[in-house]
């Protein structure tokens, strides 16, 4: 009884706070100092059509490095725990064979999904999208493949080599910015190019491609280790 009363009291207090906030809310009509700087100088300094990408990769590039690291650590931990658990049991589950139609469809659709993932991360500086989204699309392609062929598995060695190489190149590009440009992950290592074309905005397309490969490899690693433990049990 008391518990329910407490819950209701909390909800009412929260509702009151939100009501007050809502009444005082009048959307900000002007940009604040940082945002107006980005909006004014982003196009000329970075040369990227999509201002979000300019912020994510260049102005706040270090944060992106941290995000990628977090994802890497998560994938590593999942792989670690699943591997230790898998050793004790060796009961073989009889996996149902998927239908022939599904297998054929996965063979046709997999390359197309990878191409669309590549499109999303290559065009990160021109249209909405970028490395993380493209990587997620690639990983869903891998998940589709594993659903169609439950007895097969993805080669972990290739994935880890791909993942670590692209991470290394990402950091090396950042250091190149330190040497040739104005600071870590400065994008003026390569010429800025013509505004609004594919080869523009310095190293942003390159960086986003490697982020995309890295994220795709990490997420596929997570999915395939989950699939593997299903198979081994």
């Amino acid at each position: 009884m008391y518990k329910k009363l407490l819950v209701f009291a909390t909800i009412f207090i929260l509702a009151g706070i939100f009501l007050k906030l809502y009444q005082n809310f009048d959307g900000s009509k002007t940009l604040n100092k940082t945002a107006s700087y980005y909006a004014k100088n982003g196009a000329s300094e970075v040369g990227s059509t999509n201002i979000v990408t300019a912020i994510v990769v260049t102005y706040r590039g270090f944060d992106t490095l941290g995000e990628v690291t977090i994802l890497f650590v998560a994938a590593a931990i999942i792989g670690f725990f699943l591997k230790t658990n898998a050793k004790g049991t060796n009961r073989i589950r009889n996996l149902r064979f998927s239908s022939e139609i599904m297998i054929t469809a996965s063979k046709i659709l997999m390359p197309i999904m990878f191409l669309i993932g590549a499109y999303v991360f290559v065009n990160g500086h021109l249209s909405p999208g970028g490395g993380f989204q493209g990587g997620a699309i690639i990983a869903s392609g891998v998940a589709f493949f594993l659903l169609a062929n439950p007895t097969l598995s993805v080669n972990h060695k290739v994935l880890s080599v791909l993942e670590s190489t692209s991470g290394l190149i990402f950091v090396l590009l950042g250091i190149a910015g330190l040497i040739y440009g104005g600071g870590f992950l400065d994008n003026r290592v390569l010429p800025l190019g013509k505004f609004g074309t594919l080869f523009s905005a310095g190293i942003i397309p390159l960086v986003y491609s490697f982020i995309g490969l890295k994220v795709g490899a990490e997420l596929s690693n997570i999915i395939s280790s989950l699939q593997q433990i299903q198979k081994e049990e």
Binding site: L226, Q230, E233
Partner: peptide, 29 residues
């Protein structure tokens, strides 16, 4: 905010659901 929308659709509603379903299958077993 199309960038955030793309991320949410690809990761939140696509991959996370799939990973949860994988894990549910494992727990049931």
């Amino acid at each position: 905010a199309p960038d955030v929308a793309l991320t949410e659709a690809a990761i939140g509603s696509g991959l996370t659901t799939l990973i949860f379903l994988f894990i549910l299958n494992k727990i049931k077993e």
